[in-house]
Design a protein around this nucleic acid. Sequence first.
DNA 1: CTTTGCACCTGTTGGC
DNA 2: TGCCAACAGGTGCAAA
Length: 271
Amino acid sequence: MPELPEVETTLRGLAPYLAGQEITGAVIRNPHLRWPIPAKLPAVLRGRTIRALHRRAKYLLIECGDGTLLLHLGMSGSLRLLPAATPAEKHDHFDLLLANGMAVRLRDPRRFGAVLWHDGEASRHPLLAELGPEPLLEDFDADHLYRATRKRGTPVKTVIMDNRVVVGVGNIYASEALFRAGIRPQLAANRLSMARCARLVQTIRETLAEAIAQGGSSLRDFVGSGGNPGHFQQHHRVYGRAGQPCRACGATIKQLRQGQRSSFYCPVCQK
DNA sequence: CTTTGCACCTGTTGGC
DNA sequence: TGCCAACAGGTGCAAA
């Protein structure tokens, strides 16, 4: 479920409630995520105050004192803020307990997510240190993409999903951004002109920003018992639409397989 | 260095 | 209705 817009929506939903809160502890119900949740975590967190929340790629960073709690939602993770006494359900693996009686609860059926602790500056954590630029910030631009693609003969879709080139472009938005840019996913990356790089940078930004704006409208549901962030009522232009007519030209949307992932494109609009 | 394929899991879907 | 294979929004890592 979580692509970058869902992670950003989660961050924005949580941040106002967490900033300044004291942590009273943590509950590890099942430590077996992508990496084990450190057993020392409850003791490490107890008594710390949350300074701020950040996002880097799809990692959620909760700054507490001189360290950072790193969270990743993997493929099926979600976070909710609820009263700590709320009974945990089947896939609720981890709670961060707050002094006000609330808990941040991680649910993750597939357990591809992560809960890790880092002492000191989060950007030096091995998982974050080698990451490329954020797609919505200035340093991701046409020049950067052009240079990053020159020596890559692999399909452009796999290159924009490479987190050393740019972070946060997941499988759905890769297809969507390429459609908007009029670029076929299987085109060799090094055959992109500077102008097409510029266009692609623009559509990646636009696609993600629109999805984040959509997610913003579901923030209301974030806290409490009802809602589930990530329920954007999105109309994808190509993703998941194989066999259906292109919304722009009516041609039949095609699907192909690239590196074990599905890609979707319009054979007429994309060259 | 780049590129490829696997691994980690559970839940849902579609075909027979 | 049941069963089984294929697939699902991520991504680090080993091997080529």
